[in-house]
Design a protein around this nucleic acid. Structure first.
Lengths: 212, 212
DNA sequence: GACTAAGTACCTACCAGTCGGTATGGAAAT
DNA sequence: ATTTCCATACCGACTGGTAGGTACTTAGTC
């Protein structure tokens, strides 16, 4: 806890970056060292194995993202439905830069390691579920406030939103770029609006540019 | 074209199975040989490299799936919207067995190799896009027949459907099992019904059992 | 006997992880 | 104040196992 911004955090940040780009298995320890500008000796001083780094990177990611979303402005809305729609709009704003810069570390990793590394999979699953729970809460409040009695659960809708995002990232990586994510978020906006009987106004005006 | 069911096809089928389970990078050539009950000598007789096998496996997969969906009963419906909803219902019926048995080879692979192997990525992308185009056609016909003038395109809705499936598979792998896919397909059914102004009847009666 | 299929043994690059060692800095001892 | 001592951070050559790929051999078939 002494100098909390040095080699160790640099390694974690490098890990997030490289793994998001190349995937977990294809990432070599030395790739991360090179990215962080650190030697292998230093790496194994801070992490006892590659898996240990993986767990660390996931934890780092979870800390980073939960902070990011906790601070996001859409929470300020009084109407819980506006918070849900605000979340969807906010996800569009995050689509900056190249594909590996806006995709999700957890989704990328869990695919590769779900059968090979139980503890890593668990760690990823916890991060994913935690984020699902965040949005789920707003959805549940919206359901209550709008007096809906749906044949779907708040959790299932929250999972749908995350599934759409994860699936969009796969298509983005297949060559379609950020445009798929935007389009899919528009569909999500429309769906949620329909479920809650909101007028189907044009989605939030900004970000109509597609990247292909 | 001589003996079209021997070592080569066994290797391809083994490749599909193992890659869907462990991912592409974590799959060793010898894993595939073991699964196919064949030696490495035979492997390199039929494929000049691991990448060559990857391309072959993708082609094999594309042939298999396009045949599967071409023969599927939902095509018989006269109303194109029924075909679209039939497709969604049909995807539920495919959710048999363990997680790696119903997930998509292309989605799994494209994540891992999008940055490392352009020709494999291209091959996966073609397969994905081809399937998108299939459903897109029915959607487009439905839009025309129902006289809709939507602010979304048939392609974007078709991509959404595939994105939801791919994203569901990620969550299924994270530990949630087939139940997520079912729930998400129910949401898709509801969304498409809403878009086309169909009464929101309960989704197709079968398959209400969740696997968790 | 020519050609394809398949098996065995081997080679080699690569990479996670090790190990002996050096720098630094602060606290305790003198 | 200076020396001693130890812990933490860091370095980079080396290793050992693994896995992709090759070379050569053998079995079957027209």
């Amino acid at each position: 806890m002494t100098s909390q911004h040095s080699s160790k955090t640099r390694l974690l940040e490098a890990a997030v970056k490289v793994v998001r780009t190349k995937g977990y298995n294809a990432t070599r320890v030395e790739d991360i060292c090179a990215e962080a500008g650190v030697t292998k000796g230093s790496f194994f001083h801070h992490f006892k194995s590659k898996e240990d780094l993986g767990l660390g990177a996931v934890a780092h990611w979870n800390a980073f993202t939960s902070d990011l979303f906790a601070r996001a402005p859409y929470h300020e809305a009084d109407d819980p439905l506006d918070r849900v729609l605000g979340y969807i709009a906010y996800r569009k704003e995050l689509l900056e830069g190249d594909v590996p810069e806006f995709t999700c570390l957890l989704g990328t990793m869990v695919q590769e390691i779900h059968d090979t590394d139980p503890s890593l999979r668990e760690s990823c699953a916890r991060g994913l579920d935690g984020h699902v729970a965040t949005v789920e809460q707003d959805i549940a409040e919206a359901v209550a406030q709008y007096g809906l009695e749906p044949d779907w659960t708040a959790e299932s809708l929250s999972v749908l939103i995350q599934s759409v995002l994860q699936g969009s990232f796969i298509f983005a990586k297949s060559g379609k770029g950020a445009g798929v994510v935007t389009d899919n978020l528009d569909h999500l906006h429309r769906y949620v609006s329909l479920l809650f009987g909101r007028p189907a106004r044009a989605p939030s005006a900004s970000a109509r540019a597609h990247s292909q």
